[in-house]
């Protein structure tokens, strides 16, 4: 479903992505991890064309992301994305956040969009918060609204860019629970995260990055069993120490 072939990206002289290739099949959950600055976020943003890349090819469902004649907005509408800092629109209520792209991009009528929004808010356990503004919600609630906003587009895949990194510890679980639920339903997911418990529980594969390159791409069992690279071993021992 999502395929990256030899993707490289330079910021001037600095190589952010170094010949990255990976595939995510339909229904697969892939966790991308690695030290900060390793290019994970850049890589996941290349998947929906939010980050342009210098060389290589990214295809979604057979459509090339980098091709000049690709209708990027149309492609992005089919891929949900969740950000580290939620990025809810602060001037709109939770419900309006979820309605916006349904109305303006999918062209749904207001009643249809609102029904979808209500259903998603209920599923996120946020039915009572529909009219609240982002500033009135906790971080965990905001991130669940952001997930609902992405799901409202009926995406064929979901991209998560460190969805729990900006959350207080007691709110991480409520967001991870939602993500586990999505994975169990068979959603195709790419997740940049340090939550190794989540990776162990739901990921089919783990991709380890360092200095812009994909160092390891292994099944979850193999990755946590015997990661082959030294750097992955070091990373795991640091992150799992506590």
């Amino acid at each position: 479903m999502i395929e990256l072939k030899n993707v490289s990206k330079w910021y001037g002289e600095f190589r952010v992505l170094d010949d990255c290739s990976m595939r995510i099949a339909k229904g697969e959950v892939v966790v991308i991890c690695g030290p900060s600055g390793s290019g994970k976020s850049t890589l996941i943003k290349c998947m929906n064309g939010l980050e342009p890349f210098t060389r290589g090819e990214v295809t979604i469902d057979g459509i090339s992301v980098g091709a000049p004649d690709t209708q990027l907005p149309r492609l992005r509408a089919r891929i949900g994305m969740v950000f580290q800092n939620f990025e809810l629109f602060p001037h709109m209520s939770a419900a309006a956040n979820i309605n916006l792209a349904q109305l303006k991009v999918l062209g749904r009528d207001r009643a249809t969009a609102q029904a979808k929004t209500d259903e998603l808010l209920a599923r996120m356990g946020l039915a009572d918060h529909a009219t609240k503004f982002p500033a009135q919600l906790s971080g965990g609630q905001q991130q669940r609204v952001a997930i609902a906003r992405a799901l409202a587009m009926d995406p064929i895949a979901m991209l998560f860019d460190e969805p729990t990194s900006a959350l207080d510890p007691e709110m991480i679980t409520e967001v991870l629970d939602v993500m586990v639920g999505l994975a169990d339903e068979g959603m195709t997911m790419a997740v940049v995260t340090h939550e190794m418990g989540f990776a162990r529980k739901v990921a089919h594969r783990v991709v380890f990055m360092d200095e812009g390159a994909i160092i390891e791409d292994a099944s979850t069992a193999a990755f946590f069993g015997t990661p082959r690279s030294e750097r992955a071993q070091q990373f795991l021992s640091k992150i799992l120490q506590h």
């Binding site: 943003k45 907005p73 089919r78 994305m81 950000f83 809810l88 303006k104 906003r149 992405a150």
Partner: peptide, 8 residues
């Protein structure tokens, strides 16, 4: 980025 990611 969030607006563009939604397809706007």
């Amino acid at each position: 980025a969030a607006a563009l990611a939604l397809g706007l």
